[in-house]
Design a protein around this nucleic acid. Structure first.
Lengths: 169, 169
DNA sequence: TAGGTTTGCTTCAAACTTGAACCAAGCCCC
DNA sequence: GGGGCTTGGTTCAAGTTTGAAGCAAACCTA
C-alpha cells in the first residue's frame, strides 16, 4: 500500500504541535526547576499524590495515571524520597507492592510551587486560548489518549496499562 | 495577587493535553526506534536537513528550527555523524560556524523510515481528528509558539532564539 | 588596532530516561 | 503443595538531556 503522506494542512498542524509542545515542556520544566528545584514530572507526582484522600498511591497506579513507565517512576520517587518529599511504604495486602506517600514537607513544597506553576501554564497556554479553544483542546487530546490506550495489543504492547488494584491505604 | 487557579474545564483540557502528549511522544519514539534505530528528534534532524536545497544547515539554524538547545543538537549530530547519516563541515564565511550535511546514506535511511513514521502519526493523531479539528490544532499551537517565542527577554531568556545568518552552503 | 564584548559551537559533569534483565510474591492447577 | 506462569517493583548499563563553563572567531569602539 502506498503511503498517504500528510496534506499541507496536516503538515502544518503536526509541525505546529511538535514545535509548541517542545517549547511548552521546556518552559514549564525551567520554571519548576527554578522555583521548586524539580522538573515537571516530579511536580506531577507530588500533585497526583496530594489528590488522593490518604495522599498515597501504589507505584503502578501512579505510573499509569502519569502515563510513564515504571522504571522511570521508581527513579523519580527515589529522588523525591531522598529529598524527603515522599515516603515509601510497603503494601500490607500485597507484599510485592509498594506505596508512595506524600510527606508533609512534600505537601508544603507542592503548595509553595503551585501558584507559579499555574501562572506559567496560564501564560503559556490557557490564557492564550478562547474558552472555545480550551474545549477543542480537551476534545482533541482526550480522543488521542483513548486511541493510544485502546489499541494496546494490536501492535507493540504498551507498558503502562495495568489492571487496577486496591489503593492499599 | 491571589492565584487564578484553573477552572474545571481548564484542568481537564490541560490534563488531557499532558497525558496525550506523553503517550504520543512515547509512541512515536518507540516506532522510530524500532524501524529506524533512532528517536523522534534524530529523525526530525534528518528531515529538516533533507528539506533544504543543499541538504545542509548551520547548527544554530537547525537548533532554532527544531526548538532545541544547542548542546542537545551537538550531541545528537555527533551520534548521527558516527552512524554516517550526517557529515559536519566547517563554515567558510564564518570560521566559528559548523554546518550539518545530510549524507546519501542519511537520506536513504530517512526515506526508508518516512512511511512508517507518517503512518504512526496518522494512526495516533491525524486520522483521529476531523479536518476541522486539524485546523483547530494548528491554530492553537501556532498561537502557543508565538507566545513563547515572543516574550523572550521578559522573564528567563530562552536559549533558542538566534538571529538568522547565511546558510553557509 | 588593542581591548572588551558578543556569537557559534563544544565540552563536561550531573541528572534523567530507556529497555532489558532480575527477583520475589501471588496465582493456578493438577 | 510443588511446578510454572503472571504481576509489582527494582536494578543495571547504555543512551540522552541539561546547564554551566570553556574556547575561539567575529565584532565593536575608542
Amino acid at each position: 500500500m502506498t503511503t498517504r503522506w500528510l496534506s499541507p494542512d496536516e503538515q502544518r498542524a503536526w509541525r505546529a504541535y511538535i514545535a509548541a509542545s517542545l517549547l511548552l515542556e521546556d518552559t514549564i520544566d525551567r520554571q519548576l526547576q527554578q522555583e521548586a528545584g524539580m522538573p515537571h514530572l516530579y511536580y506531577s507526582i507530588l500533585a497526583n499524590l496530594s489528590e488522593t484522600p490518604e495522599r498515597r498511591l501504589r507505584m503502578t497506579d501512579l505510573a499509569e495515571g502519569l502515563k510513564i513507565t515504571r522504571p522511570r517512576l521508581t527513579y523519580a520517587v527515589a529522588r523525591l524520597e531522598k529529598d524527603g518529599l515522599v515516603r515509601r511504604e510497603s503494601c500490607q495486602w500485597d507484599k510485592r507492592g509498594s506505596v508512595a506517600v506524600l510527606t508533609d514537607e512534600g505537601m508544603a513544597v507542592l503548595e509553595r510551587a503551585a501558584p507559579g506553576h499555574v501562572e506559567t501554564v496560564r501564560a503559556a497556554l490557557i490564557d492564550r486560548l478562547t474558552p472555545e479553544q480550551v474545549r477543542q483542546l480537551e476534545e482533541i487530546f482526550t480522543s488521542v489518549t483513548e486511541g493510544l490506550l485502546g489499541e494496546e495489543g494490536a501492535s507493540g504492547e504498551m507498558p503502562w496499562r495495568r489492571r487496577s488494584s486496591p489503593s492499599c491505604s
